[in-house]
Design a protein around this nucleic acid. Structure first.
Lengths: 246, 246
DNA sequence: ACTAAATTGTGTACTTTATACACATTATCT
DNA sequence: AGATAATGTGTATAAAGTACACAATTTAGT
């Protein structure tokens, strides 16, 4: 590798062929993708986990992941995993961070790109036939295989931040939802209680909810109205940003 | 690779040795780190770029980056690059995202982990002796080598978001700064003008600024008071979060 | 020494947003 | 028919954000 030093600084004189030989050489690392798949059920935020296959982590649960093929895009790998595990392929997906501790994986150096996704459990409920796959309450998870607890925590924190500034919550619900269901999603994600009247006022003031003139069915009480979220209107009107607040 | 299918789902029966062989095999990818190094000078937000060394990108500027060694932590690689290029090793550093398009690099498949960092230009001004390294106005950059423009844009957007919610701006300033300098940093990052009296009111109300009882020197007008930012106090009092706002 | 120029430092009125809070209505279940 | 459980609605108060002007301090120029 061609480098020269000038006053302690590196000069940037690598040639393409030098870089190519570095890229082709043993200088490579296994890459994986791990997906934190969030769902919403029984008024709780859930995450889909699989029982770990490795002896070292026997009996521990882990996130859904796989190695990235050298000819595969990162996002494609995440989409592939989601499709394989949930049967869904049109889901909200967001990259969270990349972890690469030297000893994070027992099989050697594996750098992993973490994603989280939001899915509507109702839509795919029938597809989890693999009995090693289960939905877990996010707040009940104390330990996972590898560094997956850390990935989950970071993803959950990012979800909490982003759900307040972007209309993500709707991805966890059916297309038609009641205001109570929407509030339940926010309360589950943010782990807090909100005032019902102020919550409704806020969302009606935003003016992104469409009253579809239908009512809830099969609820053991007065049914609420059902709404859609109008993404087009949101895209046109969304705020740029606000102010300094920390 | 041992997989079985059950109703279109994958079962998770890989053994450790199967994974090890996947990890060790040709199934590996070159990894790099690219750093967006932000600075603040002449009341403008700047980014440190180097002239690209590759013919294909002749005359284009690029971010500072290097391949990650298989025995090197990701953060360490970013810190190494910052140290090599700026001489600084105690800088604000944040991972932004990982890009892995199949054709993003002419030398082959190279997945890159992007970081941004904030440094105080004054502190290291004398260390940029390499004349291929230059500070550029962030808003003057229209084209960069590889996909570096995309990395810059994403980093800049993330900086704009985060600077509003976290006390990052101070990393671009000397330890002692005047309120006007602080406001200039915010105005440069957010590309906006703010009301001077309201800005002061806001920061004094937060109560994280320490009046160090010194005045600016060598300014051609009435000097302002100098302040420190009290990170300890901030860590104790910082807000959890707020509400729904999009 | 005086004047002009530039910037600091300060307070108040107004607008917008957030919060706290209660009761009548509509449906189901027994 | 009555009990239960949730929906739907408005107002008063508190907090935060915004708009805005003038005197004081220092340097630079003459």
């Amino acid at each position: 590798m061609a480098k020269t030093k000038t006053n302690g600084q590196l000069k940037n004189i690598k040639t393409l062929s030098a870089i190519q030989s570095e890229v082709k050489s043993i200088n490579r690392i296994a890459l994986s993708v791990d997906c934190v798949i969030f769902g919403f059920d029984e008024n709780k935020l859930k995450v889909l986990l699989i029982r770990s296959d490795l002896k070292k982590f026997q009996s521990k649960w882990s996130l859904l992941g796989d190695l990235v093929d050298p000819k595969e895009e990162l996002d494609s790998a995440a989409i592939r995993i989601l499709k394989q595990r949930t049967g869904l392929d049109d889901v909200y997906l967001e990259q969270v961070k990349t972890l690469g501790s030297l000893n994070r994986h027992p099989a050697g150096r594996v750098v992993t790109v973490a994603y989280y996704s939001l899915i509507n459990i109702q839509h795919h409920k029938l597809q989890i036939l693999d009995n090693e796959l289960h939905w877990h309450d996010v707040n009940d998870i104390s330990e996972l295989a590898f560094d997956h607890k850390q990935i989950l925590d970071t993803s959950y924190e990012q979800l909490q931040r982003r759900v307040q500034e972007h209309p993500l919550a709707f991805s966890l619900l059916p297309k038609k939802f009641s205001l109570r269901e929407l509030q339940n999603v926010y309360e589950a994600i943010l782990d807090t209680k909100m005032d019902r009247r102020n919550f409704r006022k806020k969302f009606f003031a935003m003016d992104f909810l469409v009253d579809i003139e239908q009512m809830e069915q099969d609820v053991p009480h007065r049914p609420g109205k059902l709404y859609n979220f109008n993404y087009n209107k949101y895209e046109k009107k969304k705020k740029k940003w606000v102010g300094i607040d920390f």
